[in-house]
Simulated assay, not measured.
Amino acid sequence: MPSRTDPEPRSPDELLDAAWDCLEDGRPDEALAPLAAIGDALPERWQAECIAHIARSDLAAAEQALARATVELDADDPGLLWATGELRLAQWRLNEAREAYAALERQEADAAVLERLAVLADLDGDTARADALLARASRIDPELPRPARLSAEEFEQCVDAAAEALPQHFRETLEALAVVIDPMPDPLMFQGRSDSEPPSELLGYFVGHELADRAAAVLELPPTIYLYQRNLERMCSTRDELVEEIRITLYHELGHALGFDEDGVDELGLA
C-alpha cells in the first residue's frame, strides 16, 4: 500500500506533458524517464522520444523511436511529420526533411515549420526564398526574432577584427590557416556522417590536420576554418550579438585546429 508520502501515480497524459516540459527546457535526458513510464499507453510517446534522442545526438535511438511512431500514428499526424522532419534534417537527408515540413505547411503554416523550410532554402542557395519564409514566420509569431544581417564585406570585417583581437601567439597560429566564409554548410561535406551537427546549428567547422600533426601536413590540403554566415546570422537578432557570435565561433574552431576537443576548447579560454 502506498505511504502517505508517496507521490500520486501520474497518468500517461501527465507523463507526456512532463516529458515535453523537459524537452522545452533543454533537458532531453530527463525526458526519457517519464516517456519510458508511459509504456504503450500513448502512441504519441514515440514522437517525443524521437525528439529527445535527436537533442541527445543519439540518432540511432531516434530512428528506432521514429519507426515505432510511424507504426503507431497516422501518416499525416503533425507530431509524426515534425519528428520525421527533425530527424531527417539532423541526418542531412534534406529532401526527406523538406517533404515532411512541406506536408506540415500544407496542414497549417506554423512559424517553426516555416523556419525549418527557410533553413532548407538557405541550403539550396535560395536566400530570397529563405528570407521570405522567415518574414512569413515573423508575421505569424511577431515575437520571433528576425536574424541580424550583414553584407559579405561587413561580415569579413568582423572576422578580421576578431582575428586582430587574439593574443599574438594565437593570431600567428590563425595565420597558418585558411578561413573561408560560406553562406551555409555544403551538404556534400556532411551527408552520411553521424558526428556532425544539424545543418541549422552548424556555425563553423574545422577541416584538416591539427597544426601539431606535421606528418599529416605533407599529405593533406591546408587546414581550413569554415564560418557559415547565414547560420550565424540566424542565431542573432542584433548586430552586437552577431559580432560576438562570430568571435566565439572563430576562436572555437581555432581551438579545434590546435587539437583540443569540445571540453578542451572551452578550457582554452579563447571565448
Rank of each mutant, 00 (worst) to 15 (best):
R4V: 07
T5K: 14
T5L: 15
D6S: 09
P9S: 08
R10Y: 05
S11L: 05
E14D: 15
L15Q: 05
D25R: 14
G26C: 09
L32C: 02
A33F: 08
P34W: 00
A37T: 01
I38A: 02
G39R: 02
A41Y: 02
A41S: 14
L42A: 03
W46H: 01
I51R: 03
A52E: 04
I54W: 04
D58R: 04
L59M: 07
Q64L: 12
A67V: 00
R68G: 02
R68H: 08
E72Y: 02
D74I: 03
D76H: 13
D76W: 09
G79W: 06
G85I: 08
L87V: 07
R88C: 13
L89K: 10
L89F: 10
Q91H: 00
Q91W: 03
W92P: 06
A97V: 02
A100T: 06
A102Q: 15
L104N: 01
L104F: 06
R106W: 01
A109T: 07
E115F: 00
E115R: 12
A118R: 01
L123K: 05
G125W: 01
A128S: 14
R129G: 03
D131R: 11
A135R: 09
A137L: 11
L144I: 02
P147Y: 08
P147H: 10
A148W: 04
A148S: 12
L150K: 07
L150E: 10
E156T: 13
E156D: 15
Q157S: 12
V159S: 08
A161N: 09
A162D: 02
A165T: 02
L166N: 05
P167K: 09
H169P: 12
F170S: 02
E172C: 11
A176Q: 15
L177F: 06
A178L: 12
V180I: 14
I181A: 00
P185H: 11
P185E: 10
D186I: 09
M189F: 12
S194F: 09
P199D: 04
S200F: 01
F206R: 08
V207L: 14
G208A: 12
E210C: 13
A212N: 13
R214T: 15
A216S: 15
V218C: 04
E220Y: 13
E220T: 15
L221C: 08
L227E: 05
Y228F: 15
N231H: 08
L232N: 06
E233W: 05
R234I: 03
C236S: 14
S237H: 05
R239K: 13
D240H: 13
V243S: 04
V243T: 11
I246S: 02
I246W: 04
I248N: 09
I248V: 14
Y251R: 15
H252T: 07
E253D: 08
L254C: 11
G255W: 05
H256S: 07
G264M: 05
G264D: 06
V265T: 10
E267S: 11
G269A: 09
